[in-house]
Design a protein around this nucleic acid. Sequence first.
DNA 1: GCCTTATTATGAATTACTCACATTAGATGT
DNA 2: ACATCTAATGTGAGTAATTCATAATAAGGC
Lengths: 162, 162
Amino acid sequence: MTLQTTPTETWAASLRSVGRRVTKQRLAVLAAVERSPHSTADDVVSAARAELADITVQSVYVVLSDLTVSGLLRRIEPPNSPARYETRVNDNHHHAVCTGCGRIEDVDCAVGHAPCLTPSWSPGSSRMTIQIADVVYQGLCTDCREASPEDVPAFPEHTEKH
Amino acid sequence: MTLQTTPTETWAASLRSVGRRVTKQRLAVLAAVERSPHSTADDVVSAARAELADITVQSVYVVLSDLTVSGLLRRIEPPNSPARYETRVNDNHHHAVCTGCGRIEDVDCAVGHAPCLTPSWSPGSSRMTIQIADVVYQGLCTDCREASPEDVPAFPEHTEKH
DNA sequence: GCCTTATTATGAATTACTCACATTAGATGT
DNA sequence: ACATCTAATGTGAGTAATTCATAATAAGGC
């Protein structure tokens, strides 16, 4: 027995800090998501079952949802894909989805300040108090770009503004 | 009979311009989405049936999907909601979703230039050729803010950067 | 160890959407 | 106006992702 803090102990502490009990199901889910970020619920079921053979699909859904609400996981909903989860929660980073193969990459920030939280409203819109700005980029990753037969330039209307 | 261009005639012209036949189903769907932007497929079914009683759910799905591909409609996928559609397609505007009531407002542009297309990549990410950047804001609309018992400030980590 | 209740398992149900195939109806040419 | 071609829609079934109600189990405080 070592006195070092293991990853499992760290997750256990995180669970307690948000007022949740430490269960092997939650630890297995957290470990699975940490090992492969941007996992789907299905991915998590497979990965978690490697260390906890009889965890159920429904439990994984419940755990993922609960951990998202308590702030230990972040849920992202990419286009044309089931929801995905990641353990990187304390920075407001964004995501880029490859339209060719569906792979997802992390993006730190588009600009160095807070444009996302100070939107310019369209006419007729009432103003909201903005708390989160999620940016989803879509494009081609290097692999798919090489494999694609034609050149696919950025859409004109997107290069003018933004 | 007037010689003025009616909304229907305008939609008919748009359909022809993208190489699509003009059908009453497509016109009903376009009119429905134009009348209530950010409609779900279900909303469109209800609205379209007011003028075309026996249009099927499946046809609405097919029409929405086809018109999205041909560029007459834009599809948005807000969190915790089925896909929604709008006719405002030729500007790259974004959306704000109220976490209280789910209402959606249009947002013109966060900043005046193109930060969305020049992301700063996280370490370990490979670079993609970005073509689209969709921004989804989440917050509280004025109605929900008044109704909410406690003050809900913006998250600290989101005010620092972005 | 016991007790409380948070958590997980069980099984069914639902929502949002897609698919294969048959039928109908725009658009084009005569 | 009519025939023809095939895009477009209707029909009916099927699926993926997720949620729900309720019963069984197991953390954590005493």
